[in-house]
Design a protein around this nucleic acid. Structure first.
Lengths: 208, 208
DNA sequence: TGTACATCAGTGAACGCGCGTTCACTGATGTAC
DNA sequence: TGTACATCAGTGAACGCGCGTTCACTGATGTAC
């Protein structure tokens, strides 16, 4: 209530994107019809085509918006974690805990990851949208890899591991955890998987 | 060559399912048109409706076929692993290695998991198909949970973990690893994630 | 061994509906001089 | 301060095409007696 009072009213374009995201995550892109979308937002079809040149343009905007929100969230979490502890391993572990908590608190069941949703329908999108989703995955790799590089300088791992794939593991568990949570309608599975990643990092790097 | 010589020619129904699986994994269910499907198999549209009562019936058959193949594969792998070592932890670790190797060998890039594909388009399917995909996830949980229960009896874990979510972690990493591998067009990411799971299990249970 | 009937694996034509897209137009607001 | 023009955020009607589904029919093979 307090929050919504402080929000400025969303633009038509923003409301289109918001509703489209929900629909794409629930039904897939092809089943998300412009017709249903505009009915939900309350404009005519031509109004839609004023905002987006065609349906693929909507997909592109959706991906971009999603990736930006995503970055903002992760930046916030790990900036906060860095404030709370200066050691690279411990600040990373704190960040992962914060991430798990965030995934636990916000939603009923996590609505899903646009980048992952696109992957299973990628021939329905143009090349630009597909490469955006790949970029998103590589951004996560780079982001987590940076933490791991700092950790590995101070803490030798107990098992030799490839750091890129260890960074990727976070994406894999997030995407996989979301799928489990949607399939089983259980909001706890995603945070639980993030905490397993945290355990693995602990066991791998934390001295005995 | 040798293999294909020993194969009996696939039935029309089987060829429909095989092609439909590829198409669903590439474009999503809604974009997989009956029209394109029958063009690929070489029958008429009415021929399709002889085999499947409607499009959802195709989806149901697809899911069932996928889940059965899946079970057969995992049964084979872990039966073999049980032959190779009687200790529950070591035979599980062997099974995971075999699993990673299988995922590395078979495909160019892993084509995808039907159960995961369904999750991001679930409102396009009827309730039966959705519940089949949830059953698939629960089958994996039960399967891996059985191994973990036997392990935990002999080896106390170094960190207290919930065994259901530790079992789920394998599904999460498989689904997430597939998404990564499809997004980045890199066949190594899926087996790499399975090996990280194996590392985690080792670190968690193996005595120092 | 022949005939009658049933089942299997389809064909061919037609259906209506929803979809994405286009195009000419409009009323309200902003900007230049 | 008034007029002219431009931009913004849409409307309304029409389009054709592809889609899933239905229905009456068919030729080849299998089964009963």
């Amino acid at each position: 209530m307090l929050e919504s009072a402080s929000k400025k009213p969303a633009s038509t374009r923003e409301r289109l994107l918001e509703l489209a995201e929900q629909m794409v995550l629930r039904k897939g892109f092809a089943s998300t019809s412009i017709e249903e979308l505009i009915a939900g937002v309350g404009i005519t079809k031509s109004g839609f085509f004023y905002h987006f040149k065609d349906k693929n343009d909507l997909a592109r905007a959706l991906m971009q918006r999603y990736l930006e929100d995503n970055k903002r969230q992760l930046d916030g979490i790990f900036a906060r974690a860095a404030e709370l502890h200066e050691d690279p391993l411990h600040s990373f572990l704190i960040g992962l805990k914060l991430f798990a908590e965030l995934m636990n608190s916000v939603h009923d069941v996590h609505p899903g990851c646009i980048a992952a949703a696109v992957i299973y329908q990628d021939q329905a999108f143009d090349a630009e949208v597909r490469s955006l989703s790949a970029e998103g995955m590589l951004d996560w790799r780079k982001r987590f890899r940076t933490h791991l590089d700092r950790i590995v300088k101070r803490y030798p791992p107990k098992i030799d591991v490839d750091l890129d794939s260890l960074a990727d593991m976070m994406s894999a568990l997030a995407d996989g955890g979301i799928i489990l949570s949607k399939a089983l309608k259980d909001r706890t599975t995603l945070p639980a998987q993030i905490m397993h990643y945290r355990n693995y990092i602990k066991l791998l790097f934390e001295p005995a």
